[in-house]
Amino acid sequence: MKIREIKDLLEAEVLCCEEYLDHEVYSACCSDMMSDVLAYVKDQGVLLTGLINSQVVRTASMMDMVCVVFVRGKSPGLDMIELAEDCGIVVLKTNHRAYEAAGILYCGGLTGNTCKEA
């Protein structure tokens, strides 16, 4: 699925790196616990989260993710957006809640892989 389709499915606003909307992603994960993202996630290109701090972007960057979706209408700060721009990570913002957003993407064809350890 292209990031652009994620944006459309979630009726999301693009906050940065619009030029990468045509990148393909094959899987996603959803968590507010960055510790767990670092421990359990593998090869997921998209992170859905309701957590707002710069470590969300850094965690996504360490995991080679290409897109972060902030759920529940949460807005990241300017420093986070600048960091994401520097990392080349598309930042989206949706009003959907995490559970709904994950369900919409899953039904749209973006499955999550089995939770694999690295």
């Binding site: 616990m33 510790s35 767990d36 670092l38």
Partner: peptide
């Protein structure tokens, strides 16, 4: 924990 860390996975990871 409210910042998304402290799940006790750091050192094992």
């Amino acid at each position: 924990r409210s910042l998304g860390f402290g799940a006790g996975m750091g050192l094992p990871n």
